[in-house]
Design a protein around this nucleic acid. Sequence first.
DNA 1: ATGACTAATCAAATTAGA
Length: 264
Amino acid sequence: MISIATWNINSVRLRMPIVERFLVEQAPDVLCLQEIKTVAELFPYDAFNALGYTHHAVHGQKGYHGVATVSRIPLNEISRHNWQDNGEARHVGVELLGPGKGMVLENVYVPAGGDEPDRTINPKFGQKLDFLERMTRWAETVDRPTMIVGDFNIAPLESDVWNHKQLLKVVSHTPVEVETLERFKDAHGWIDVGREHIRDPQRYYSWWSYRSKDWKENDRGRRLDHMWASPELAKQVTGHSVHEACRDWEKPSDHVPLVTEFDL
DNA sequence: ATGACTAATCAAATTAGA
């Protein structure tokens, strides 16, 4: 059995205390982090090594973005896709070499897309859609058992948001984004592992804004984080969990971690 | 609809998240 986790950590250096707590309590074999907000040279390798996570693939950047995959299982970094087409650090791909050998694990941070869902007045929105189109062209070529996880910044289903009608024109839940994400899904036949286990229309969120006095009180969440698997690999999934409790820890990220377990 | 927040950079105010 192996387990893989994903978490948009919103600054890994600031949040090492809760990362350590999560690793001690949940002990995933692999953890994929997004928004590490640091260059690789300043990544807290020692703290991960001390907990047994001695294998790392860090694609960092100063101040913004950045992704990292840390693991107790030996891994080999195999790719850093430039789906943003501007050099931003938003992807790192690895293959597992120990248990789960042969699995490719893609860690991605899709751009948020700005405020206005119209590419003619908001270039960031167009950049987001173009990013997804490049991912789709890549997905058509995937021919190995692959898991793609991370912050997709899109909540596709009505049950992925606290209020579907109210969010239809809010970036992350607009029809054009949902349709673009659907094309990416179809390009490889990805299985939405999270939704296999917490099925629509059950409530499933992974992000709650910092701008709420009490995130739990009105529960205005969105499912922005995803774990998708190749069809054959998805058959090996035995469990999936959302760790909402982490949103209440000291100095939390606005995202919570997801964990998928495999019979591998 | 918006924002009551938070982080990095840089050292006061700006950019960004979503």
